[in-house]
Protein backbone atom coordinates (compact mmCIF):
# COMPACT_ATOMS: atom_id res chain seq x y z
CA UNK A 1 0.00 0.00 0.00
CA UNK A 2 2.91 2.35 0.77
CA UNK A 3 4.25 1.75 -2.75
CA UNK A 4 0.82 2.36 -4.31
CA UNK A 5 0.54 5.56 -2.29
CA UNK A 6 3.55 7.08 -4.07
CA UNK A 7 1.56 7.18 -7.32
CA UNK A 8 4.44 8.44 -9.46
CA UNK A 9 2.55 7.53 -12.68
CA UNK A 10 -0.13 10.22 -12.15
CA UNK A 11 2.26 12.82 -10.74
CA UNK A 12 1.97 15.17 -13.71
CA UNK A 13 -1.40 14.13 -15.17
CA UNK A 14 -4.07 16.80 -14.90
CA UNK A 15 -6.89 15.10 -16.79
CA UNK A 16 -10.29 15.14 -15.09
CA UNK A 17 -12.30 12.12 -13.96
CA UNK A 18 -16.11 12.55 -14.33
CA UNK A 19 -15.39 16.01 -15.72
CA UNK A 20 -14.38 17.63 -12.42
CA UNK A 21 -11.98 15.53 -10.33
CA UNK A 22 -8.23 15.69 -11.16
CA UNK A 23 -6.94 12.17 -11.73
CA UNK A 24 -4.30 12.52 -8.98
CA UNK A 25 -7.03 13.31 -6.45
CA UNK A 26 -9.42 10.64 -7.76
CA UNK A 27 -6.62 8.06 -7.46
CA UNK A 28 -6.04 8.92 -3.81
CA UNK A 29 -9.78 8.95 -3.05
CA UNK A 30 -9.89 5.38 -4.40
CA UNK A 31 -6.78 4.66 -2.32
CA UNK A 32 -8.75 5.75 0.79
CA UNK A 33 -11.51 3.30 -0.15
CA UNK A 34 -8.87 0.56 -0.57
CA UNK A 35 -7.57 1.35 2.95
CA UNK A 36 -11.09 0.70 4.28
CA UNK A 37 -11.25 -2.60 2.34
CA UNK A 38 -7.81 -3.57 3.65
CA UNK A 39 -9.05 -2.84 7.20
CA UNK A 40 -12.05 -5.12 6.56
CA UNK A 41 -9.80 -7.91 5.26
CA UNK A 42 -7.47 -7.56 8.25
CA UNK A 43 -10.45 -7.87 10.62
CA UNK A 44 -11.71 -10.93 8.77
CA UNK A 45 -8.43 -12.79 8.40
CA UNK A 46 -6.00 -11.66 11.12
CA UNK A 47 -8.25 -10.55 13.99
CA UNK A 48 -6.34 -11.06 17.28
CA UNK A 49 -8.73 -13.54 18.96
CA UNK A 50 -5.93 -14.79 21.22
CA UNK A 51 -5.40 -11.25 22.50
CA UNK A 52 -9.07 -10.93 23.43
CA UNK A 53 -8.81 -14.22 25.36
CA UNK A 54 -5.61 -12.97 27.02
CA UNK A 55 -7.39 -9.76 28.13
CA UNK A 56 -10.24 -11.78 29.62
CA UNK A 57 -7.99 -14.32 31.40
CA UNK A 58 -7.55 -13.93 35.18
CA UNK A 59 -3.81 -14.75 35.49
Amino acid sequence: MLFLHQDSWAWDDQSLVLGFMPVGLAYHAVFSICCAILGGLAIKHVWPHDLEDFADSKD
Binding site: L2, H5, G24, H28, A29, F31, S32, C35, A36, L38
Partner: peptide
Protein backbone atom coordinates in the same frame (compact mmCIF):
# COMPACT_ATOMS: atom_id res chain seq x y z
CA UNK B 1 -2.13 17.86 -0.27
CA UNK B 2 -4.68 15.00 -0.18
CA UNK B 3 -2.06 12.29 -0.73
CA UNK B 4 0.42 14.08 1.51
CA UNK B 5 -1.86 14.34 4.53
CA UNK B 6 -5.20 12.60 4.05
CA UNK B 7 -4.86 9.30 2.18
CA UNK B 8 -1.63 8.41 4.01
CA UNK B 9 -3.38 9.18 7.32
CA UNK B 10 -6.23 6.87 6.32
CA UNK B 11 -3.72 4.05 5.87
Amino acid sequence: TYGLMASISGL
